[in-house]
Computed example of a mutant assay.
Amino acid sequence: MTPSSESALLRPDLGRLAVHIVLLAYTALALFPIALILINSLKSRAAIFDDPLALPSAATLSLVGFQKVLSATNFLLFYGNSLVVTLGSLLLIVLFGAMAAWALSEYSFRGNRLLALFLALGIMIPIRLGTVSILELMVALNLTNTLLALVLVYTAQGLPLAVMILTEFMRQVPGELKDAARCDGVGEFKIFFQVILPLVRPAIATVAVFTMIPAWNDLWFPLILAPSEHTQTVTLGVQQFIGQYATDWSSVLAALSLAVLPMLLMYAIFSRQLIRGLTAGAVK
């Protein structure tokens, strides 16, 4: 084997190695803030300021932050409110988004493209620009300080992206499969729920991840639409530990650690489907 052929064989390996190095560096950069929060949530306030990068030791280990969060506040209530809002909006986004995507991808009707363009505008225009109008609407409907208001807003926020992703996936479902089901006398609803939805599970997982994280982490709309104590979400409940002149960092980091755990768990559950959905969308 000549030196030129050996160098040609080494180039792909070097390229893959460079890609893996870049991906590992990005992973470390993305996980560093989460690791820093988890590490410092298990330390005393003095230890946090002395060496925030150090791991907890026998002298610095402290659970006082978690004790304050669970005993001095209604954190479990805030937790439950966030779960209700996130899961409720996620269910509506997946259901209505899949139904709209099925209609746009399967049926030809006048205004099909115009409707798809209208939904795509929802991705480009931030929903926060309509905060005043949304607040006026919720006041008129008597929905302020209710979790339903947040569910409706997050559903409207997540639907455009869900429709776009699911429409592209549903267009890839073979037409012969749907025609065969129709020839067997299967109705449209059964085709949709029993044939189409199982085939687009990777797309549904992708939609779930991209919509539940903004809903869980949002502070803007809970602060405006549901600021009362019985409707506060986790992100809004954390703010009570942040004062104008002093901040209880042990409690803040403990609350953030508890808040990030559901998202890590959901990502671990949906990660395989998410990767399948992203890679399938990349080659279509």
Results as ranks from 00 to 15, higher is better:
Val153Thr: 11
Val153Ser: 12
Tyr154Thr: 00
Tyr154Ser: 02
Tyr154Met: 03
Tyr154Leu: 06
Thr155Pro: 05
Thr155Leu: 09
Thr155Met: 07
Thr155His: 01
Thr155Asp: 00
Ala156Asn: 03
Ala156Leu: 09
Gln157Ile: 05
Gln157Cys: 10
Gln157Ala: 15
Gln157His: 15
Gln157Arg: 11
Gln157Trp: 15
Gly158Cys: 13
Gly158Ile: 01
Gly158Gln: 01
Leu159His: 13
Leu159Gly: 04
Pro160Phe: 13
Pro160Tyr: 09
Pro160Arg: 08
Leu161Ala: 08
Leu161Asn: 01
Leu161Pro: 02
Leu161Gln: 00
Ala162Gln: 03
Ala162Pro: 01
Val163Pro: 11
Val163Gly: 10
Val163Gln: 05
Val163Tyr: 08
Met164Tyr: 14
Met164Asp: 07
Ile165Gln: 10
Ile165Asn: 08
Ile165Ser: 11
Ile165Val: 15
Leu166Asp: 06
Leu166Asn: 02
Leu166Glu: 07
Thr167Tyr: 10
Thr167Arg: 13
Thr167Ser: 15
Thr167Trp: 10
Thr167Met: 07
Thr167Phe: 02
Glu168His: 15
Glu168Ala: 13
Phe169Cys: 14
Phe169Gln: 10
Phe169Asp: 13
Phe169Tyr: 15
Met170His: 13
Met170Asp: 05
Arg171His: 08
Arg171Gln: 14
Arg171Glu: 09
Gln172Ser: 15
Gln172Ala: 14
Val173Asp: 10
Val173Lys: 04
Pro174Ile: 04
Pro174Ala: 14
Gly175Asn: 14
Gly175Phe: 15
Gly175Cys: 09
Gly175Trp: 12
Gly175His: 14
Gly175Asp: 14
Gly175Leu: 11
Gly175Glu: 07
Glu176Thr: 05
Glu176Ser: 15
Glu176Met: 12
Glu176Lys: 13
Leu177Tyr: 07
Leu177Asn: 05
Leu177Ala: 15
Lys178Trp: 02
Lys178Thr: 04
Lys178Met: 12
Asp179Lys: 14
Asp179Tyr: 12
Asp179Thr: 02
Ala180Gln: 08
Ala180Gly: 09
Ala180Cys: 07
Ala181Asn: 03
Ala181Gln: 04
Ala181His: 03
Arg182Gln: 06
Arg182Trp: 06
Arg182Met: 10
Arg182His: 05
Arg182Asn: 05
Cys183Asp: 11
Cys183Arg: 03
Cys183Trp: 10
Gly185Met: 04
Val186Ala: 13
Val186Phe: 04
Val186Glu: 06
Gly187Ser: 08
Gly187Lys: 01
Glu188Cys: 00
Glu188Asn: 01
Glu188Ala: 03
Phe189Pro: 00
Phe189Asn: 02
Phe189Trp: 12
Phe189Ser: 06
Phe189His: 02
Lys190Cys: 10
Ile191Gln: 12
Ile191Lys: 06
Ile191Glu: 13
Ile191Met: 07
Ile191Phe: 09
Phe192Asn: 01
Phe192Glu: 06
Phe192Arg: 04
Phe192Met: 08
Phe192Ala: 08
Phe192Gln: 04
Phe192Tyr: 06
Phe192Lys: 02
Phe193Tyr: 09
Phe193Cys: 05
Phe193Lys: 03
Gln194Trp: 08
Gln194Thr: 00
Gln194Tyr: 11
Gln194Val: 00
Gln194Phe: 12
Gln194Cys: 11
Val195Arg: 03
Val195Asn: 06
Val195Cys: 14
Val195Tyr: 07
Val195Asp: 10
